[in-house]
Design a binder for these strands. Sequence first.
DNA 1: ATTTGGCACTCTTTCCATTCGAGTGCTAAT
DNA 2: ATTAGCACTCGAATGGAAAGAGTGCCAAAT
Lengths: 361, 361
Amino acid sequence: MRRTDVTERQKKILAALVEEYIASAEPVGSKTVLERAGLKCSSATVRSELASLEKAGLLEQPHTSAGRIPTGAGYRLYVNELMDRRGLTEEETKRINEALASSAGRDLFQDAGRLASEETSYPALAVASPAKALITRFDLIYLDSRSFIIVLLMSDSTVKNKLVRLPFSFEEALVRRLNAAFNASFTGIGREAITPELIESTELGAGDTLGLASVIASFAAEALASGQRAEPVLMGSESLLKIPEFRDSDKAHRLMSYLSGSELAGLPSLPGSGDIKVLIGPENVAEELKDTSVVLASYDAGDNMRGVIGVVGPTRMDYSKVAAKLSYIAAGLSRLLAGRSMPPQGFGKLMIKGDDTPHEG
Amino acid sequence: MRRTDVTERQKKILAALVEEYIASAEPVGSKTVLERAGLKCSSATVRSELASLEKAGLLEQPHTSAGRIPTGAGYRLYVNELMDRRGLTEEETKRINEALASSAGRDLFQDAGRLASEETSYPALAVASPAKALITRFDLIYLDSRSFIIVLLMSDSTVKNKLVRLPFSFEEALVRRLNAAFNASFTGIGREAITPELIESTELGAGDTLGLASVIASFAAEALASGQRAEPVLMGSESLLKIPEFRDSDKAHRLMSYLSGSELAGLPSLPGSGDIKVLIGPENVAEELKDTSVVLASYDAGDNMRGVIGVVGPTRMDYSKVAAKLSYIAAGLSRLLAGRSMPPQGFGKLMIKGDDTPHEG
DNA sequence: ATTTGGCACTCTTTCCATTCGAGTGCTAAT
DNA sequence: ATTAGCACTCGAATGGAAAGAGTGCCAAAT
């Protein structure tokens, strides 16, 4: 059971078996291991070694008289100690760089997720860790006697806005007074601090008899709340269907439903920035992921925000490649998001940060 | 071949067969038809009628000595003339109403898509037809000597914004001058009108020696462009896997890839608002959809915008139910989006319209 | 004490032949 | 026209039998 029980030769055998299994998706027998590991012994010897490894809980047999496949523990040992951490080819890094660069600016999360999925051919998900941003500043832009725009500058330097159009008239002066009042009492507070009492006192303070304050407060509350929930994007879930393990429609369906439906709440404590976290099969908490592996890479999204990008695949997965690619993509994201010190595309040539993805009629 | 060749009894038989096939997903034989249609004749008669229908191109046999299934033309006749357009049950309408109401405001497209998918148990997609919105008004909010916010009010009443932070200082007065200059020369124009010359003249006019104008112009151009492309959302594609026709992983994979990857450019000329369009199997232009059916409903998204919501499923589909549900959802969307004259959720009680979905660090 | 060749054994997979059954098409009688 | 009856067809299900892959173990060899 203890790793120290595993001899050098056994490690070599385990590594060969895992690699073969990753490539072939089929139980591996003693003969095949022998070939791949290039050992100087007979298949009988390998067999007895395999039996030991099985006793140690690193391998298992689907049934008597089939080859063996790694257990979760087997993969874990492989990933921790045996795996040869090769990097990416030049072509691969180039491809990733280009893809990230070309998506510059818009929908970076989505594009990064798509990229991760395409590169690994597994479903990918990307989350920006919830920002606990507060409101730094209010601006109310008076448009005409019945409408104005609320512009909120958040502490994480995002900007949110809403156009408010009312069925009755109000004065520009009122909007100005409200602007000042909100800047005074609604900045730097959390959602729970927005109470009916606060709204009422703001209303009184600004002389608002029309209820505008409650509209503004409502939007403020919404803005504070929306930052709270992470919004995971899932890309390329259809690639599951190409994986032998998920040829079974039911299995694929279960996993896809979980991925697309879940809040991904089960996402484990995020790894530190730049780190890679590999969760192998049974190590996953979520029941639905028990026989899949999850590889996560975290990136620095700037302004103290941390994001995670990851893929979900069969336990039989080229961990080395996948980890390298995710890691590289995550680094690229960090570079693009955290620094943002490179010139924007288009006409400009200066650094820009903000929100440019509105949608809604 | 001409529809007039089809006798009343044949229509009855066709209808029974289609309905049975929709329910069972398996070729239907003469005996089953007889039972379901409740005809006063024998199975032999039905058989000869079936043979006629087959000759007319409305039915086909997967192989000799199996039951029959409808062809595209068969479904078409059924949908056009035979289908009994029953409405929704009270429970169904209630469920849809509640779902739409609860999503009020945020991510309505996405939620509507999800709803459509859940209700029909087919993959659903929702598109807002591209708005050709122009910029109505610029507001530049000066934050501090190195940053300001650009707020754009678009002609479709959405609002877009961006926080700009620069590595050098500038005066509030400059920002004010630029604000006026952009309001003068950049409102009401299309993207193609934003030329280097225009930017330069604006720069000169406002006395901008720092290049701020080009940053603002760049964002303006981006805002004008982003409205142009429709952004389809696809929901519930995993439900494909529950459908017998798509138990085959390869088939499912092909379709899912098409749906998630495509620009949905193949979406046919949209039906008029309130209309339902049914595209049966081979009627679809896209090769990938040749053996699926697409049901589309359009809705009115306000401000002259039109959206489409639809589902993709097997040709064997309960057209009546699906059409009714989509139609009802589309009507609900129209109500929520076009009018928007109902009080917003939260603290407010007045009508609100705008953009509240920023994301990006 | 480890390694090895050999061999019996176990299971799955594949293949074939057979049967089974649903459904048709045709014909002759009504 | 309709119908009962029947021969026919073709896929689906059934049931071994044979093949193949791989193991486990033992006795001999190193």
